[in-house]
Design a protein around this nucleic acid. Structure first.
Length: 104
DNA sequence: TGTGTGACGATCG
DNA sequence: GCGATCGCCACAC
């Protein structure tokens, strides 16, 4: 019996923290990189995240380029605003991956 | 111990 | 093209 969540948390945070300013990634990419069973785990861990300051979760979005509806730091609208502040542009309320997707 | 839930993703209709 | 549904698996209750 191990604390799988606590085991993945630092990995997810580390990976997310590596995302440079002006770039974004998806839950699926993180999950795949960390050999996680499902992308949902990434989201659950990030939501359970106790250090949002060191973890720019706003740079983590859906595979479609959309934002999470349950963004914990003020809503998807706030998240979008943060991303635009990083220099990321939106197309039809979606992130332009071909320009801003960060390869893990 | 079992059931429900969820920052997702892919597929079906 | 968009909406709805299922599957994924760890965690909370």
């Amino acid at each position: 019996m191990k604390n799988l969540k606590k085991d993945y948390s630092p990995l997810v945070y580390r990976l997310v923290a590596k995302i440079p300013k002006g770039k974004v990634t998806t839950y699926g990419q993180i999950a795949k990189k960390l050999k996680m069973k499902s992308a949902r785990l990434v989201g659950q861990i990030l939501h359970n995240n106790s250090d949002p300051v060191k973890t720019p979760c706003h740079r983590v979005v859906f595979a479609d380029g959309k934002l999470s509806k349950s963004y914990a730091f003020g809503g998807a609208k706030k998240q979008k605003e943060k991303l635009m502040n990083e220099g990321i542009t939106f197309v039809k309320n979606k992130i332009d991956f071909k320009t801003f997707l960060y390869s893990l």
